[in-house]
Nucleic acid binder design. Structure first.
Lengths: 212, 212
DNA sequence: GTCTATATAGGGATAGAC
DNA sequence: GTCTATCCCTATATAGAC
């Protein structure tokens, strides 16, 4: 029953692969790309080198690429897509979508106890190796958030500024939280960012009311 | 004339060492701690292994420690100390000191083209190796900035929030700027952070005026 | 598919000539 | 002080048995 040899992309195999990728992500997050030796990867996954190279013929590079794709998919499904306009519900509650984003981020980064692998890769020469994945992750996040902020009624320049402050604020809070070993810095930062968005939105509502 | 053998800590030797440390910093910033191999360090400094181990008997670990100490000293002199209260000029212009901090940071990080090595070290297991240096850097920065904000008239909770937002905002902007290869994200973020401080300060001044 | 054994290169670090 | 040569270890990757 476990065999999926007939359909090479069976769901059991996918689950296995998914599980391995999650473990790989943990290793890369802990040690960085250069620091993630095959020995550590072997320990972290419980697989021998043979199995690893069978799953990822391209070696470490392909493993990291798979991890980045996995992260990207998660954010695409749980963060970016929910932010974006949806034809079926074009008049949706955008402030709520933005709140959902903060929520998802808080959960994903374990309230500041888990760092952003993409951000970590961005800081050294690892970025160049995975330039497209690193860039794409932030660009698509920024685009989705910016569009949602516009839809929520923020003027263009403010939406752009908020987008940078939010994405940067999240990354920076993760750095800071880990540097001083205080995860709650991340939680507080998320709350303040969300509060700033609400205040800005309320200010526009107030201006509209005054005008009419 | 170049010999400083009699006084082992002669100024010429210090300059040499300082120059080497600056080059080491560049290598660590580019490749990260794990990625900074002795071969790359050799190329980046122009020194052979013999010279390197003569200068830093503790090897790579000591090199990185020296770099961190060097960075720390720079920030102590150019950022932290100017922020702090000074007995000789206790009634100084604290808003201006804060402006000076933003200025110094903008210059140090080359307007977003240079990352923060301490922040980069914080993100993976390198942090544990240099835990004290990493933690101390951010803690002392935070303390100095927080005190300056209090002195500038910000209420306690606001000063604490601004401190986290500013330190985190700077780190995050550096991550973001490098991730998408747009240094101006950093510049803009610095300007907005500074603007927020000014607005908050102005609001308090306004409240005071209304009260009296 | 997963293991063991091995190949080959490069890692950090040291010794000793100069 | 700086270089060259060399040490030993670990790195990534592959081959082939099972």
């Amino acid at each position: 029953m476990r065999s999926t040899s007939r359909n090479g992309e069976g769901s059991a195999a996918n689950d296995d692969r998914s599980e391995v990728i999650a473990q790989l992500a943990e290793v890369f997050r802990t040690y960085g790309y250069e620091g993630a030796s095959l020995t550590r990867i072997t320990q972290g996954t419980g697989l021998g080198k043979g199995s690893l190279y069978h799953l990822f013929p391209g070696g470490k590079d392909e493993m990291a690429q798979a991890v980045l794709a996995h992260i990207d998919l998660w954010f695409e499904l749980n963060v970016f897509a929910p932010l974006r306009e949806n034809a079926a519900e074009a008049d949706d509650d955008y402030p709520q979508r933005i709140a959902h984003m903060f929520d998802a981020c808080g959960r994903y980064f374990l309230s500041g106890r888990k760092v952003c692998l993409v951000g970590a890769f961005a800081l050294d020469s690892t970025r160049d190796r995975f330039a497209d994945a690193v860039r794409g992750y932030f660009v698509r996040w920024a685009e989705a958030l910016h569009a949602a902020l516009l839809r929520a009624g923020h003027p263009s320049h403010e939406a752009a500024a908020l987008t940078e402050d939010i994405l940067g604020g999240i990354q920076g809070a993760l750095v800071l939280a880990r540097a001083v070993n205080q995860a709650d810095i991340f939680t507080r930062t998320l709350e303040r960012l969300q509060e700033r968005v609400k205040r800005a939105a309320a200010a526009h509502a107030g201006q509209k009311r005054n005008k009419t």
